[in-house]
């Protein structure tokens, strides 16, 4: 595409090819817009909304999915933009366990989010699913970024082992009738574990090492003896 777009981001002019997102254009200027759900190799769905910026519209726009337009005047860190980001982070911190999500923890600090502000609210909890030798699923740490669902489906693997339980606040990643992974179409490719931004999906070996197991015991516990014929 030859057509270009010229716009201003935080007062600085930039010209980009048509179709460029605000997130990418800002990055070219060295302006970092925070993201949580966004992953450069996956379909952007605009879920977490912490990348929301002011583009002079009726409401803010998610930078990861909004394309640059001629004459656009983007504010990436205005007071209102930061108010929204801080509130999303505060609400998220009161919803799920973020101890193993260092990037989100850094954002909480950067935006001076008060993690205790909504602490009286319900947390989204779930039992830990330890149903296969390869990885565990701890949805107490799941932020619903959809990355695992996407890599399992059209974004990569076309395996379709994952979908959702529930709706609204009570949405969680789920399998067909809550079956363990070995009873689903999962092929244990590991891509979901690779893209998980928190500790929700974790290699079982890593978990056991963290718990102080030594490699030999882990081998004993997780591998079946090869059948000799």
């Amino acid at each position: 595409m030859s057509e270009t777009i010229t716009l201003k981001i935080d007062g600085r002019e930039i010209t980009v090819p048509q179709g460029t997102t605000i997130l990418d254009a800002a990055a070219q200027l060295g302006i970092e817009i925070p993201v949580i759900c966004y992953h450069p190799h996956l379909t952007a769905n605009g879920l977490c909304r912490v990348c929301s910026v002011d583009v002079g519209w009726r409401v803010q726009a998610a930078a990861c999915v909004t394309q640059c337009a001629n004459g656009m005047n983007v504010e990436t860190h205005s007071e209102d933009v930061c108010r929204g980001r801080r509130t999303i982070l505060e609400m998220l911190a009161a919803t799920v366990e973020l101890a193993e999500a260092p990037e989100i923890l850094a954002l909480l600090q950067e935006y001076e989010a008060d993690e205790s502000r909504f602490a009286a609210g319900e947390r989204r909890t779930a039992p830990i699913h330890d149903d296969n030798p390869f990885y565990i699923r701890d949805y107490n740490q799941c932020i619903n970024c959809w990355r695992c669902v996407q890599v399992c489906a059209e974004d990569a693997q076309y395996t379709f082992a994952l979908s959702f339980d529930g709706r609204g606040f009570h949405t969680q990643i789920g399998t067909f009738m809550n079956k363990g992974m070995t009873d689903t179409t999962c092929v244990f490719c590991g891509q979901c574990v690779g893209v998980c931004p928190t500790g929700a999906l974790k290699p079982k070996r890593q978990l056991l090492l963290e718990q102080g197991w030594d490699p030999d015991s882990i081998f004993e516990a997780t591998r079946r003896k090869r059948k000799k014929t």
């Binding site: 949580i36 759900c37 769905n45 605009g46 879920l47 977490c48 909304r49 912490v50 929204g84 509130t87 999303i88 609400m91 998220l92 919803t95 932020i143 619903n144 959702f164 529930g166 709706r167 609204g168 606040f169 009570h170 949405t171």
Partner: peptide, 8 residues
């Protein structure tokens, strides 16, 4: 339950 601000 799609976007964070509304879901939470």
């Amino acid at each position: 339950g799609k976007c964070f601000p509304c879901q939470i």
